[in-house]
Design a protein around this nucleic acid. Structure first.
Length: 492
RNA sequence: GGUCGGAUGGCCGAGAGGCUAGGCUCAGCUCUGCAAAAGCUGCUACACCGGUUCGAAUCCGGUUCCGACCUCCA
């Protein structure tokens, strides 16, 4: 393992050492949600994966400009270039403005993002806010000969593009395969000249609500275009990292590359990162299978597949126990296991702040801790390996507990490094925070008093009183832990 | 049908030629009035069939199954 950050680049299908284009700056673009409905749990996982990327790059000292868009127009309900705009369809069904739909689900997305402790992007641009730029990009593509207009729509000319460039290198698609489809599809009478061509500007029908004037008539931008436009505008023609779900590799990301090359002659992205999908009890999560639940349903336990609710931080922790590039399976059992593990880890984390240091017998433990702290960095450097990082944190948790039990000892210098790193990795990098309610002074005083009464009851072996206090507090969500040094308490 | 990825212990999940991943569960023990918490100990797995190698969960070939995207058919 290296001391340098390595990440898996979909483009080369290899782990590569990360080298920023213009250090210390890093440009990070992530495909955001289409706000026609509540954010999907699978979406949330992608955002969490890239939240980690953002957090870790920042930890390493990079100044990251993180752009995550909001798709509020142009994403069609059926794959391909036919079909209706997802947002517009929903708006018509509810007899409200498309922008009301956009606002509603944008708000709801932000709410969930906050619960999930996702860091807000530096810029969150929307497609409708960049119509002018999209029209300009379409024009540049036409000017360069890579697009043609038919009946007010503009299509990207893949065949033309293939003469000089590679189309399909990101997703591993072969040009010949695409060409083979051509013969059948050319007969179709489609506006497109070639099966693989894709719309970058679509003529709008009179009924369409959201539409704009353009040199080619009234229309709407194609879905793939917005990401090219907004990443170029805010991160430049070439930037560092572009992320998104696996399912976006083709055609979405492939089209982005073609558009940027077509418009500006440059491949836009140095490192492409793709997160994997979600399954439920081993099945693909999908609405048609009835096994898709929403983030809020998961938090509240309001779904028939869920035995109970799981707090946002538990779900976040659960997600991070799987590498972003692997499929992640949701099940009650797995979630419950994570819930317990999470509590244990956070407990140790809290404990780490109050550990005693020692002046002797610290050598072995010091060394062990230092090794583990180094390992935290090595694991994160290895393509953001959060599961391994968490495994190391558990090793540290075991040591923290031992130090607390005074079975091993740590020097002051190593202890303060341990405390600093625990904070960095648990809170800043993994983005986990304690979910216990903020205590106020009155509650603290109250608990101090109650525990004092209980303690004297216990000295008198008045077990009924002692247990009554413990049980009643437990009902109120306050847990008492007895130890040799007296009792402590936690509240959820 | 095409492209890509995957199959790991009771469950979840890392790893990727020799070295205990980790979490949860379960059992036993220590501590304890009881419980909880914490600690200790135990539970040795890599879909199947071949091959390469001193040595393979890890490499190669094949088989089966699963997933994503694309396509075809209906």
């Amino acid at each position: 393992m290296e001391a340098q950050l390595k990440l898996y680049n979909t483009l080369s299908r290899k782990k590569e050492v990360f080298q920023a284009l213009n250090p210390p700056f890093v440009g990070l673009y992530v495909c955001g949600p289409t706000v026609y409905d509540e954010v999907h749990l699978g979406n949330l996982r992608q955002f969490t994966s890239f939240d980690i990327v953002y957090r870790y790059l920042s930890f390493l000292g990079y100044k990251v400009r993180y752009v995550r868009n909001i798709t509020d127009v142009g994403h069609l309900s059926d794959d391909g270039d036919e079909g209706e705009d997802k947002i517009e369809r929903k708006a018509k069904a509810n007899k409200i403005e498309p922008m009301e739909i956009v606002q509603k689900y944008t708000n709801s997305f932000h709410h969930v993002a906050k619960l999930f402790n996702l860091i807000e992007p530096s810029i969150e641009p929307s497609a409708t806010g960049h119509i002018v730029e999209q029209i300009e990009m379409v024009q540049r593509i036409i000017d360069n000969g890579y697009a043609y207009e038919v009946n007010g729509s503009v299509y990207f000319d893949v065949k033309k593009y293939l003469e000089k460039h590679d189309y399909g290198q990101l997703s591993g698609r072969k040009v010949e395969d695409l060409l083979e489809q051509t013969r059948d599809n050319l007969e179709g009478g489609d506006e497109k000249r070639f099966f693989a061509d894709f719309g970058i500007w679509k003529a709008a029908s009179p009924e369409t609500i959201m539409k704009w004037n353009s040199p080619w008539g009234v229309g709407v931008p194609g879905w793939h275009l917005e990401c090219s436009v907004m990443s170029t505008k805010y991160l430049g023609q070439e930037f560092d990292i572009h992320g998104g779900g696996m399912d976006l590799k083709f055609p979405h990301h492939e089209c982005e590359i073609a558009q940027s090359v077509g418009a500006d002659g440059k491949a836009p992205v140095r490192y492409w990162m793709h997160g994997n999908m979600l399954t439920v009890n081993g099945d693909k999560m999908s609405k048609s299978k009835g096994n898709a639940f929403l983030p809020m349903e998961l938090f509240e336990g309001k779904h028939e597949l869920l035995n109970k609710g799981f707090s946002p931080m538990v779900v976040r922790f659960f997600m991070l126990q799987t590498h972003y590039s692997s499929t992640l399976d949701f099940s009650n059992e797995a979630l419950e296991a994570s819930e317990k593990g999470y509590a244990r880890l956070m407990n140790a984390y809290k404990l780490s702040a109050t550990l005693p240091s020692s002046k002797q017998n610290t050598e072995e433990t010091d060394k062990e801790i230092l090794t583990l702290l180094d390992k935290l960095r090595l694991e994160m450097n290895d393509d953001f390996n959060t599961p391994k990082t968490i495994a190391v944190l558990f090793d540290l948790a075991a040591l923290i507990n031992k130090i607390n039990d005074k079975s091993v000892f740590v020097s002051e210098a190593v202890l303060s490094k341990l405390q600093a790193d625990m904070k960095s990795f648990v809170e800043d990098i993994l983005g986990l925070h304690s979910e216990t309610k903020d205590n106020n002074l009155a509650v603290d005083k109250l608990m101090e008093l109650i525990l004092e009464i209980r303690s004297s009851a216990r000295e008198n072996k008045d077990w009924p009183t002692s247990d009554k206090i413990r049980d009643h507090l437990a009902e109120a969500g306050i847990k008492i832990k007895d130890s040799k040094d007296g009792a402590s308490w936690t509240m959820n």
